[in-house]
Design a protein around this nucleic acid. Structure first.
Lengths: 200, 200
DNA sequence: TATATAATTAGATAATCATTAAATTAGAGG
DNA sequence: CCTCTAATTTAATGATTATCTAATTATATA
């Protein structure tokens, strides 16, 4: 469930030792022993924290011989931080106000779709700006079927003709909670759960 | 300390009941009893959670007669979310250092190092001014190895060729928290604990 | 003053969690 | 096969915390 994931993310960051680990890893990858020394704790403690950070997708691991090097998962660190804001405010809608889309946003929507898609419907580029990126992502998932279950392969095949970097886009679908993944099966989230442009 | 504030913020959001409270408050202000009913907990529990949310500046309160209405503190909700990202990456001083550092401080740094060190790298004199002294001290410890443990003797031998009064400098390392001493063993403090020139 | 309502506090309980020492696993190399 | 090193697991301990009930405080009003 969404809520658990977000609670989990915040639990992962609700401990000073774990935050210090992330700060150290920002300088570059480190193995468990080095982290233990720097933070004046035992390797067992590092293992414990690494498990929590891994579960929240905040770190990656690389094995060399019998040493495991940890590094930051920059992507998730940057994107999860604002997930809570989206969760809190997105449920506000729910009334009949769905059609009451601001004039300015409607215009932005049209221009973003015109500018980022070719006439053939290919995505030229993923917008860097969150608001515009969400417009693009929402435009894409609106072409998927509501309530239907998709395999990862099906999602990939849907995206491929539109943009070459299907892996990123697939991840963004999940990240911004336009889709929900459980056990390799993808499904559209109800529109009410989508981020609201008003709050961005 | 900065770290505690951020840990506190994440602790506040590391509980499903508290997140649900925020989601409900996104619809508008509510009093304790109403929240208790909606969430199937007692009013005492709401008081408990409200205290934590208040400490993290995530909610406001308004009293009317003997009823207290809670509402979201939108400002803090939006701004705290990304604080963690800034904290993690701010301290990276490998590549991005030059860009982050103010122009004026960069100049000061260069001139202090030029003026207080000989061409051979000897320290002519310990600056009296705090800001300049810190530049000198930071320049010195940056030549030490991160995470390595040093004996007092090793520290002395490191300083001696640079300045005759090694005892004073060694003491300054500890005083200004560039190094950490435990049981005659010296170790570099994480850079995030160093005094920041912006605040001097 | 007495009473009603809302909130808080105090104390208790059960769960979660950070940490450690000790034992164990995993990989590499002699 | 033995040994070294790094990491993990296990079991225990102490601290924190979410929740409740019961008692108390705060405010308003009949």
């Amino acid at each position: 469930m969404q809520l658990d994931k977000i609670v989990n993310y915040h639990k992962a960051l609700a401990d000073p030792t774990r935050i210090k680990i992330l700060i150290i890893l920002a300088e570059g990858e480190r193995n468990g022993q080095v982290l233990a020394e720097k933070l004046h704790v035992t390797p067992a403690t590092i293992t414990h924290h690494a498990t929590k950070l891994r579960e929240a997708s905040l770190i990656n691991e690389r094995r060399d011989k019998n040493t495991i090097y940890f590094s930051l998962n920059d992507y998730f660190i940057h994107n999860n931080a604002t997930a809570i804001v989206e969760l809190i405010y997105r449920n506000v809608r729910t009334k009949g106000e769905e059609d009451v889309m601001e004039e300015s946003h409607k215009k932005l929507q049209v221009s973003v779709i015109n500018n980022f898609f070719t006439a053939e419907g290919k995505l030229k580029q993923i917008p860097a700006q969150l608001k515009k990126k969400l417009i693009v992502l929402q435009h894409l998932v609106s072409q998927l079927e509501n309530g239907r279950k998709y395999t990862e392969k099906e999602i990939n095949n849907f995206i491929k003709p539109i943009h070459e970097d299907f892996a990123t886009i697939r991840r963004e679908f999940i990240m911004h909670q336009l889709m929900y993944r459980d056990n390799e099966i993808y499904e559209l989230n109800p529109k009410e759960l989508w981020a609201r442009w008003e709050t961005l």
